[in-house]
Design a protein around this nucleic acid. Structure first.
Lengths: 283, 283
DNA sequence: CTTGCGCCTGACGTAACGTGAGGTGATATG
DNA sequence: CATATCACCTCACGTTACGTCAGGCGCAAG
């Protein structure tokens, strides 16, 4: 609620009329240096004592300073504020300025929201996993950072229904999926080099396969692998897909080394081969 | 969703191993100057070509840069980032850093929310009122800016039940009240100097009185005026109230001049006198 | 007479780069 | 072969909104 009447307003003539800079600073809450700065920048220039050269602030300056503080609070720069310090009346044109500030602030806020979300998800993962390879965590964080952009990019090449299946939707789904990925990559780094026959490697791939199926479903997974296997002779599409992969690589670094990736590619084909056949047989 | 496997991972050895600074800049999206800066600040120091002195970036630098970008996205400073560039594994201690970042971001976000709220309310007022005296608008904005602080301060001297009545609660209430105030202050400035008998002045006070009653109710209003009239001899309380008024005056500048305030005080007592008697008579 | 206070004016430091200015080795062109 | 262009280098100042000394002045008290 706004202040209405401060006291009786009768003994007003008793009020102190002028302030030294330190008094003014104390009573307004801004620093002396800030007042010096506003003076220097011609934003708030008080009278001077002719003899001593000391700054002399008056009630009017108090109002002006409040104006400055208020517009700063709205997120404007001192340069922008300076332009508004001349006018005594705000009219409709000020709305444009407000709307501009509004959109800036909304943008900032969106960034903060994305960062906060990423922080919370990362903290959750770290609490459960204790130690995580930095490349893996960075990859995850980069992925969170660009979730929206990634979805937009994906829209260009993947059908809507697959899209919906492809990206985990709820916060819970995301957490499950991300933790599964972390564990998977940990094991990739641990078992790197072993044969596809190794039981631990088998277990790793089994778990990973199940994780993917949990979030995507079998049909979407097949569509997706079809898209990326590139055995369809569709030049135009091929270029789009190439560009997509490039862009994603730029946005999200790989969580594993090239050697690990090559090894993973090899054992995956060894592992998937029979599975695909099995599925095909069922059709 | 995170990138899983980019291509077959077989032809990986064909990849370009090194980049010039401009190539590196283009493929990562950061500026050349930024890379220079990171080098200068010992945050990312690539190899050098012995002969030409040119910077030579490798795959490893790509990973490091992604790490930097990611931590920047989380809101960390380059100094803080530098400390984390050495470690290869994130453990539980990183959670503390995350939590710290989190609280910083939450604080920033709260500020933005307050500013956004104020902007929207101000824009609404301006759209309806077209032109508003700057002192009035500044006062309103300052008041919005400090709503929370004002409520906390008020808690010290006003009873809870009155408090609840005193501050408009819903957004709609706030808008109605604020617009009423704007209109009131406009008329104060317009009719300043006129007698309390003037019909326009009467109308102004009537409307204002009704506005206050609308948000507060009669009983709360009386309690409030009792508190501020200071005719109760309660030294301790008096000091607290004095301090409260001082602090509010510091936070929220008056929307009207001292002369206007004095005039308003006078006609208010002229106006309220009979009203109070009337009410007292009813008891 | 000196000490201290409050004020003054420079002037440099901050964060994370942007933006030239001027110089060098390598390549492309007349 | 001379030169123009290119990509790179380093140096260095500009930016925002102040914080933080450093040195100096006038005035009052001890």
């Amino acid at each position: 609620m706004i202040k209405l009447l401060s006291g009786k307003g009768i003994e007003a003539d008793m009020k102190k009329e002028t302030f030294s800079i330190s008094e003014f600073a104390k009573s307004t809450g801004v620093s002396v240096r800030t007042l010096h700065y506003y003076d220097e920048k011609n934003i708030l220039k008080p009278k001077r004592d002719e003899h001593t050269g000391h700054r002399v602030y008056e009630q009017e300056d108090m109002i002006q300073l409040h104006k400055i503080m208020t517009m700063k609070f709205l997120g404007m720069s001192l340069d922008e504020i300076k332009d508004y310090m001349q006018t005594d009346i705000f009219d409709l044109s000020f709305i444009d300025t407000l709307r501009l500030q509004e959109s800036k602030l909304i943008k900032d806020k969106e960034q903060i929201d994305i960062a906060l979300d990423a922080i919370q998800r990362t903290a959750y993962l770290l609490e459960n996993e204790k130690e995580v390879d930095h490349a893996v965590l960075i990859s995850l964080l980069a992925s969170m950072q660009n979730e929206k952009k990634q979805e937009e990019l994906a829209k260009g090449i993947i059908k809507d229904d697959v899209m919906k299946k492809m990206f985990p939707q709820t916060a819970k789904e995301k957490m499950i999926f991300e933790q599964g990925l972390l564990i998977f990559y940990k094991r990739v780094k641990k078992h790197f080099g072993k044969s596809a026959d190794d039981p631990e490697v088998q277990q790793m791939l089994d778990d990973f396969y199940r994780l993917i199926l949990k979030v995507m479903g079998m049909d979407s997974l097949k569509e997706l692998t079809d898209i990326f296997s590139l055995n369809i002779e569709d030049k135009e599409n091929e270029e789009r897909i190439e560009a997509y992969v490039q862009e994603i690589e730029r946005l999200v670094p790989s969580p594993i080394t090239e050697e690990e990736e090559a090894w993973l590619g090899k054992i995956t084909t060894d592992y998937m081969g029979p599975l695909w056949d099995e599925e095909e047989g069922e059709n």
